[in-house]
C-alpha cells in the first residue's frame, strides 16, 4: 500500500507555484473551514462570509506568485481574507449610510436583528448567539485580534504580521477585547438572572 505523503503548507504552495493544481486543491481543503470560521465571526453573516472565503481562494489562485516562503502560508492567507473582510465591512457601512440617508428621520431603525435563540445549543453558560453578538459588538480592531487569538488560536507574532500592527499593540488589543467581552457576557448573565 503506497504511503500517503503529508506536505506542509509551504511545500504545497511552492508546488502550486510550479503549476501543480492538486496542491491548490489540498490548500483549499485545509483552509476553507478555518477561513470560514474566522470570516464569519468577522462579518456576521454566513453568505457574505462564504463569498469572502471564495474570493480569498480566487486571489490565492491568481496571485500565487506573490507568496514568498519567508513567511508562513497561514499568515499570508489570513492576511488576504482579513483584508477582503475589512473591505466588505467598509462597503456595507457605506451602503448602510446611503440607505439611512434615503429614509426619513422617523423611519430610521437602528436595532440589530436578533437571531432566534430557541432550542439553541448552550456553550458553557452562554448560547452561541450570545457569544456571537458579544463578539460582533466589539470594535473592529479588537474583534479581529480576539478572533485570531481565541478562535483561530494563532500566536501573537502571527497576528501581529497579519494585521501589520506591533506586537505590544496586539497584546494590548487582545487584553482589552477580552475585558470588554467579559463585561458584555457578565451583563448577559445578569439579564438572564433577572428574567428568571
Amino acid at each position: 500500500m503506497p504511503e500517503k505523503v503529508q506536505y506542509s503548507d509551504k511545500e504545497l504552495i511552492l508546488r502550486f507555484q510550479q503549476g501543480d493544481e492538486l496542491a491548490y486543491v489540498e490548500l483549499v481543503n485545509r483552509y476553507r473551514d478555518r477561513l470560514m470560521n474566522f470570516v464569519y465571526r468577522y462579518v456576521g453573516t454566513r453568505q457574505e462570509a462564504e463569498d469572502i472565503v471564495q474570493d480569498t481562494f480566487v486571489k490565492l489562485f491568481q496571485k500565487k506568485d506573490y507568496y514568498r516562503p519567508i513567511s508562513e502560508f497561514s499568515t499570508w492567507i489570513f492576511t488576504i481574507a482579513s483584508n477582503l473582510a475589512k473591505t466588505e465591512l467598509r462597503k456595507r457601512k457605506r451602503r448602510k449610510v446611503s440607505y439611512l440617508s434615503q429614509l426619513g428621520m422617523e423611519e430610521k431603525d437602528f436595532d440589530i436583528p436578533v437571531e432566534d435563540t430557541t432550542d439553541e445549543e448552550m456553550v458553557g453558560e452562554f448560547t452561541e448567539s450570545q457569544i456571537q453578538n458579544a463578539i460582533q459588538s466589539l470594535q473592529l480592531h479588537f474583534r479581529t485580534a480576539l478572533i485570531l487569538r481565541d478562535i483561530e488560536e494563532l500566536s501573537y507574532e502571527e497576528i501581529s504580521k497579519i494585521l501589520d500592527v506591533p506586537l505590544g499593540t496586539i497584546k494590548s488589543r487582545i487584553n482589552r477585547a477580552r475585558l470588554q467581552l467579559q463585561e458584555m457576557l457578565k451583563q448577559v448573565h445578569k439579564d438572564r438572572r433577572t428574567t428568571i
Binding site: R32, D33, M36, N37, Y40, R41, R46, A49, E50, V53, E121, V123, G124, E125, F126, E128, I131, Q132, A134, I135, L146, D150, I151, E153, R178, L179, L181, Q182, L185
Partner: peptide, 16 residues
C-alpha cells in the same frame, strides 16, 4: 475573563 475566553474557544466552528 477566563470564562469568556473559554466560551469563545469552545464555541461552534463554522464550516463552508
Amino acid at each position: 475573563v477566563r470564562s469568556a475566553v473559554a466560551a469563545v474557544r469552545v464555541s461552534e466552528r463554522f464550516a463552508v
